[in-house]
Design a binder for these strands. Sequence first.
DNA 1: CATTGTGGCTAATGACAATAGCCTTGTCAA
DNA 2: TTGACAAGGCTATTGTCATTAGCCACAATG
Lengths: 205, 205
Amino acid sequence: MPRAGLTPALVIAGAADLADEVGFDRLTLAALAARFGVAVPSLYKHVDGLEAVRRGVAIAALGELGAALAAGQAAAAEAPPAERLRVLAHAYRAFATARPGRYAATVRAAQPDDAEHAAAAGSALHVVLAVLGELGLTGDAAVDAARGLRALLHGFASLEAAGGFGMPRDVDESLDRIVDAYGRALTLSTERAHPGSDVAPPAPG
Amino acid sequence: MPRAGLTPALVIAGAADLADEVGFDRLTLAALAARFGVAVPSLYKHVDGLEAVRRGVAIAALGELGAALAAGQAAAAEAPPAERLRVLAHAYRAFATARPGRYAATVRAAQPDDAEHAAAAGSALHVVLAVLGELGLTGDAAVDAARGLRALLHGFASLEAAGGFGMPRDVDESLDRIVDAYGRALTLSTERAHPGSDVAPPAPG
DNA sequence: CATTGTGGCTAATGACAATAGCCTTGTCAA
DNA sequence: TTGACAAGGCTATTGTCATTAGCCACAATG
């Protein structure tokens, strides 16, 4: 029996690819083992069962998502905040459509006591918060804005992934308009009545 | 063997309740049969397998969601559009948190050829489009707005359900602010450059 | 009272996750 | 060089679940 040369990282990476191919919910140890040409129980030498594989994919995917968002921001470093917001939104959507299995994994909530998973989510969120900061948002307003933006992006991406946009309208353009509108609303909000009590910790959210 | 008196509708209703209790993804024929005090294969006399149960729950839940949204709008019939938008958002969130299993079912996309499922989704969407119409949105702008609003509401609800809001900030107030901001952005958009080419059919989206 | 269809059932099959325990291979130290 | 040992494969087994096949009882209908 020649060694297959598996490692935990390899198994997780293979699982992520498999999830992109067949869907995160159809990720199965049987299929994963087959992909490596190995018997199912062999996987248990590297990974602690299906749930651990899913968690591993989630953490890895959150890292990749954060990196993709950061790369987009770096490429638009000189652009004005509104444009950077648009770039962020498109990078998010691009990740979700190009890597649907990984993206689905990023949406699963971390267990309350799972610090590593929470940290991965937080690092992806960091990029979003940075862009919002450029729009001059602090305190409660920043929290609201982060919630809303993540909701908007996630909702858009997941509805699109689920085929929920059955309307004859270009999706890219829709996203532009929606994000522009949202950004405009945010900056208007700051000029109004919500002075922002104090800076909230950028917990995963 | 006394008859259990099952019907397809009863089975679906029980499945919806079970989904609310244990989560839509943990909906299982075994648990469903146990809930009715019946052997698993008996369910097949009423329902065409697990996937059909899921679909049935989705269709039923979409109907209930649409009814809940409509009821909220009826109760706020005299309120100004911005307030009605806020009411809509809160009704949506209330449904999602009170009936998480059913709500999760509503998010699953219909199969492309599943007219009944698509119709159920469309009827729920109808309420949303009506409120947007009150804001004076037509054509492409209305399509964009519907996409964005559904994305916003779904994203908010699903992230909250997943425990994604780890920040110390009242969630109800966040939702108010976000929806207000979005509504403001929408009405601003209409006053600007997008005159809306033609009315798009209210397909499920 | 005979018939028939409906709605239960048991039994069997097959996918999958998970655990237990074996056996080989490669490494590292005596 | 060799011997021990850990790592990383494996087979076998168990248990959960969905699904299908086919039986049987009951109740309604004539």
